[in-house]
Every structure is written in structure tokens, then in C-alpha cells.
């Protein structure tokens, strides 16, 4: 074919490399056989201006919000770690020390009952975090379930679920929660969770429904259907894994809102009732002593704000990471 072929190295074929050939030799798609392996190092690359493109968990926002969230979760689970082992928010109270200002022994001061306020504030995290997480988890499960059904099956299933959503949407969230809570005279954390969870799911269901409807029409779902897969398999293997992450992110963003809703309801007197310990209750109690003992207001407020902010920032960091548009 050509006398020049001798000069090509051993890796090159002896005949015209592009000449049509008949034998069935499926070319390797992964690594082409011809040619020397190319060195990975580039020889002439000037370092481009360094942009912070490290792993997610090293991004400042994620780092800060993640730390806050982790601390708060820890505080809710093991308040002893922060308040000291054997501590008890209602023990060692001395009514004589009522509303004492912060001092070296009691850095947050004392409350009305003369109990150590630091211990009380630490123990108050549990109610807030528990309400936030559990309500969100319940709403997440309901949203995932109903949203998948409505989005995947469409038709009357969709109509039924969507109308139910619309109705739940029609009720103002706080108002509806107030009405439900009024039915109970003594309200524990679980009562509040029940009331909030009852009305927190419609947004999630709608969101899930639309993302399932989008995934349902993807080609890989059609491919699976062509293989003969049934609905159960398609939902479990294809629909859920591909539409759950956005919902998870949305729900994470909602935790902060649930926490502040709990505090708000408790503050206006229809949330938790004593003997529960919560930031909302502490704020409500502090209302009357706002000029005499401002520390009663300041410390739970700071904790509440930081917690809500932490969860919202955490949700946003998650959204930025998993938002398909950002990729």
C-alpha cells in the first residue's frame, strides 16, 4: 500500500489503518489499542487562578451550618454533654435566687424558679429539634408516598390526591394548627408534632408529584417498561431514587420553619405546656420580666435564632449541591 509504513512504529498496523475491514472485531470502546499511553502530567499548564472548588463539606457555608446542626442535634440527644452529667433543669432550684443575672457560677443566670438557666436552655433544645425533625420526617414520608402515587399513576388517583392537597393548602397553616391544638388541654411535644404534621405535607406532595411526573417520562423509565418491568419495580428502582433527593432537600429547608412555628405557637400559649422545657416556653415566661431580667429573653432567643439559621443554611447548602441546574 505504501512504502512509508515501515517507518511507523510497531503499534501501527502494517496496512492502511483506515481501510475497511471485514472480520468481526469489536473495537474496544474503553481503551483504544493503538498508540502509546499518554502521560497524565501536562507539561505546560500554568496554574489557573485558584478557585475554591473543594469537596462540598469544605465549603464555608456547609461547614458552618453543618457544625451548628450537628451541635444542636447533639445537644438535643445528650444535653448532659453540655450541661454536665447529673444535671437536671428542675433540680437544685432555689426560689430565693429568682431571676438572678448571669454570674460566673451561673453564666446564663437563674430563671423565675431560681433554677440554673444555662441548664434549662440546653435542655430546651430537645423539644425544638425533636419537633423540627419528626414533623419534617412525617411530612417527608407522606409527601414521598402520596406524591409518587399521584405523579406516577395520574388519572383519578392524581385528581383525588391533588384535590386533597388543594384543600389542605386552603387552610392557613398556623390557624389550622391553633384549632387542632386547642382540642388538647395538656400539650406535650407529641401533641405539637401531631398538629404541625397534620398540615405540613401538601407542599411536599405537590413537589414530589411534579418531580415524579418528570422522571416518569424519562427514557430510562421507558426502557425499563420495554423490558417488561412492572409498576412496582419502576417506582422502586427508577422513580423514587431519581426524585427523592430534591424532596429531601426541600424538606431540609423546611426544618427551620417548623422549629420556629413550634416556638411561635408555644410563645402565644397554645403550643407546649409546662412541665415541658422548651425555648418557646422560656420566651413566653420571659415576656413579663423583659426589663427586670432581659437575660431570660436573650439566651433562648439566641439559641433559637442560631438553630433556625443553621438548619436553613444547611438546607440551602444541600440545595446548591444537589440542584441539577447547578451541575
Amino acid at each position: 500500500m505504501s512504502q512509508n509504513t515501515e517507518t511507523t512504529p510497531g503499534t501501527a498496523p502494517a496496512t492502511d489503518p483506515l481501510a475497511p475491514t471485514n472480520p468481526i472485531t469489536v473495537p474496544s470502546g474503553i481503551r483504544p489499542p493503538a498508540g502509546p499511553p499518554a502521560p497524565a502530567a501536562s507539561f505546560r499548564r500554568k496554574p489557573a487562578k485558584k478557585v475554591n472548588r473543594g469537596p462540598v463539606w469544605l465549603k464555608p457555608r456547609f461547614l458552618v451550618s453543618g457544625t451548628i446542626v450537628a451541635l444542636m442535634l447533639l445537644m438535643a440527644a445528650f444535653p448532659q454533654l453540655f450541661a454536665g452529667f447529673g444535671s437536671d433543669p428542675t433540680a437544685n432550684c432555689d426560689i430565693m435566687n429568682t431571676n438572678q443575672a448571669p454570674s460566673p457560677e451561673h453564666i446564663f443566670g437563674m430563671d423565675i424558679q431560681g433554677c440554673d438557666y444555662y441548664t434549662n436552655v440546653i435542655y430546651g433544645a430537645r423539644a425544638s429539634i425533636l419537633v423540627g425533625i419528626v414533623v419534617t420526617a412525617i411530612s417527608f414520608v407522606i409527601s414521598a408516598l402520596l406524591g409518587s402515587l399521584a405523579g406516577y399513576f395520574g388519572g383519578w388517583v392524581d385528581t383525588l390526591i391533588s384535590r386533597a392537597c388543594d384543600m389542605a393548602f386552603g387552610l392557613p397553616f398556623i390557624l389550622a394548627a391553633i384549632v387542632v391544638l386547642q382540642l388538647f388541654s395538656e400539650r406535650t411535644v407529641w401533641t405539637v408534632i401531631f398538629a404541625l404534621a397534620l398540615f405540613s405535607w401538601p407542599g411536599g406532595v405537590r413537589f414530589m408529584r411534579s418531580s415524579v411526573m418528570e422522571v416518569r417520562n424519562r427514557e430510562y423509565v421507558q426502557a425499563s417498561r420495554l423490558l417488561g418491568a412492572g409498576n412496582g419495580r419502576i417506582i422502586a428502582k427508577h422513580i423514587i431514587p431519581n426524585s427523592l433527593t430534591p424532596l429531601l432537600v426541600l424538606q431540609t429547608l423546611g426544618i427551620g420553619g417548623v422549629i420556629s412555628a413550634e416556638a411561635g405557637l408555644t410563645f402565644i400559649g397554645i403550643g407546649l405546656t409546662p412541665p415541658s422545657v422548651s425555648w418557646g416556653l422560656q420566651l413566653a415566661a420571659a415576656r413579663e420580666y423583659i426589663s427586670a431580667a432581659p437575660h431570660l429573653l436573650i439566651f433562648p432567643a439566641i439559641f433559637l435564632t442560631i438553630t433556625v439559621l443553621g438548619f436553613v443554611l444547611f438546607g440551602e447548602a444541600m440545595r446548591d449541591e444537589f440542584d441539577p441546574k447547578g451541575k
Binding site: R218, E219, A223, S224, L226
Partner: peptide, 23 residues
């Protein structure tokens, strides 16, 4: 029907969107 499904298959235009990204 199952037998028919086994015998007729489709190759899609956009290879990426025809593959579940999480598998």
C-alpha cells in the same frame, strides 16, 4: 406479552437520558 417484551427492544437516541443515572 412477557415473551413479546423479551423479543422487541428499543435503542434510544440520547444514550445518557436512556440510562438511569443512579445505577
Amino acid at each position: 406479552k412477557k415473551e413479546m417484551r423479551r423479543n422487541i427492544q428499543l435503542i434510544f437516541q440520547d444514550p445518557y437520558s436512556s440510562l438511569n443515572p443512579r445505577m
